[in-house]
Design a binder for these strands. Structure first.
Lengths: 333, 333
DNA sequence: TCCGGCAATGTTAACGATCACAACGGAGCT
DNA sequence: AGCTCCGTTGTGATCGTTAACATTGCCGGA
């Protein structure tokens, strides 16, 4: 930095001012300094800056290391968004989402003096870990606990599930079954509530809930059961992979989709359009989640305030493909 | 740090020595210092350390932002491995893998003074970007250019493809068709070579190559073609998603898998076991790739040397499921 | 006894930026 | 003319750590 200053014939402080785009620098010296910077190929040392300002240009993201489609998509979307603002993204993945693991990951990030923290915390156990966070770091939670998190961005699971269920009902089905995600996930709980709400609104019987774990395997296992119940003509699954497993189970039992059973999934994974048949599903807008998250985080970082109680909800969208059809006349009841 | 020193009744330098596990510190003072650290909840400032040592405890990873299964899996696997060694991981994703984008991402990481760099660079265009890297940062390339990269970890695509092709041949098929990935990917090229080699070794006709782009859609489109060719009884696809699209195309044309056509995929995505039928595929060991990468990188970081010309190849494994069967007697020729 | 050597500890000076404050000079007002 | 104000620039001090070197005290050998 001294070299740049010398070459430009100014003081190091003026160089710093140019770097930080201070207003009170004359156009002339600004140009001189920029020229010197370019000539020497100088780049400011982030560490030195972090040392004196007490904050870095890094955002920490805590997520689970599984390659679940939702969290993974959010991570990349967020990373891309953050890049545009000049912030770097530090990932700290945790193997399981228990309180201890999350606390550890958060601590690691705090160690690194991150400017802000994004926690993708879809399960209840993440709540306490964040509540005990003494430090006043800007923090935004994605898919976190609606009861606890002060700043939260979330996909509107209830609306998505309701749309999926209504879509099946509208096709003429008596009722709709549901294979849910793990019960401790908020996403899962929200989808269950939306499903129930839609059935209730339609004044229709609510079938027993089947529970999965997001995996195709759990869809397959629950499908073994559903395939044996002739009553079942419509199923809403908590995600597309469960739907894939279900598809296979129905296949094996000779029940055709959508002729015998209609299915709606959730997530719209890229392959969903190539299931057999192409899957009607609900698409959450992960890019919008990422953008909203970044926006809220930046507001906190810039204002110096932490934990503004803001909530942002992103509405998902039903993608209609070929896995839904009216029930066969007189098939049930 | 001064506070800790005062409380322990030593100098700040001694505290630093304890922190860095220097040898010449008496057991007694070490304990005193540790106690003081614990009591005050002190944690060293990474930025200050980075400033004086000139290096951080951060590893930068450059990858593409698409959610392709392979790269995404490697990223999480690597992140987890790095965590164990106390290193943080900074992701810099790029939208496309052209030279410019990669250079930019690398520059961003260099700005952050990363201790080492991992580039997941599966396409040829990444080569020049890395070659022009003036700085002497420890660097490991994953799936990079075998001709250029000095330190490289890679899945043995050729071996995997050869195993897949042989498996189909062993089932009794006359020959094996192939739908490849994008032609500028090394992974893709390797799988094509392995496929060709296996056919050649068997002294069997090599059918024309079909080209896809990793997506299920490309599998479907190529499948439209293959489904019309009665000769086709065995197909090896460059990944599982292409296989899924192919499966649907065959389905639509009334060709059954594996009765009429046998398929082998690549990647073993978690859902592959629940395709209809469950997909026989080749599983690369992403965790092993991550471990090897970290190991090579750490060697470079610790020794201070950069770019040791080491190459590590990870052998994949064939996972046999239900998408392969012998051809029907007298089906062809 | 004296001295070299070594282990344990302390002292001072960096590292490279920003911040707080001071200094300068020209414009505009009384 | 003299004063204030403000835009522009420069001058230390400072952030929290490690590196380099200095110091102390004890041990063992000549």
């Amino acid at each position: 930095m001294m070299d740049v200053a010398r070459l430009a014939g100014v003081s190091h402080q003026t160089v710093s001012r140019v770097l930080n785009e201070h207003k009170n620098v004359s156009e002339q010296t600004r140009l001189k300094v920029r020229a010197a910077i370019a000539e020497l190929g100088y780049r400011p040392d982030r560490a030195a800056r972090a040392l004196v300002t007490g904050t870095s240009q890094v955002i920490g993201v805590v997520t689970q290391n599984s390659s679940l489609y939702g969290p993974a998509s959010m991570l990349t979307a967020f990373e891309e968004a953050a890049q545009a603002t000049g912030f770097a993204v530090n990932v700290g993945s945790v193997r399981s989402l228990d309180e201890r693991s999350i606390s550890d990951a958060v601590e690691r990030h705090l160690d690194q003096r991150v400017a802000g923290l994004v926690v993708i915390a879809p399960v209840a156990s993440a709540g306490p870990a964040l509540a005990n966070l003494h430090a006043d770091v800007p923090l935004v939670t994605i898919d976190g606990d609606p009861e606890r998190s002060s700043t939260l961005v979330t996909v509107d699971q209830v609306a998505g599930a309701r749309a999926a269920t209504r879509h099946l009902l509208a096709a003429g089905h008596q009722t709709v079954w549901h294979i849910s995600g793990p019960s401790d996930w908020f996403d899962s709980a929200g989808r269950v509530r939306g499903w129930e709400a839609a059935l209730q609104e339609a004044g229709v019987e609510i079938p027993p809930l089947l529970t999965g774990d997001w995996s195709a395997g759990s869809g397959y296992r629950n499908g073994q059961l559903l395939a044996r119940l002739p009553d079942v003509t419509a199923v809403f699954t908590a995600n597309d992979h469960i739907a894939l497993g279900l598809l296979r189970a129905l296949n094996e039992h000779g029940r055709r989709v959508p002729a015998d059973v209609s299915i709606v999934g959730f997530d719209d994974v890229p392959e969903a359009a190539y299931f057999s048949p192409p899957l009607t599903t609900v698409r959450p807008d992960f890019a919008a989640v990422a953008t909203a998250t970044l926006e809220l985080l930046m507001t906190q970082i810039e204002s110096g305030t932490s934990r503004i109680g803001t909530r942002r909800t992103i509405a998902p969208m039903l993608v209609d493909r070929d896995s839904v059809a009216p029930p066969r006349a007189g098939a049930t009841h």
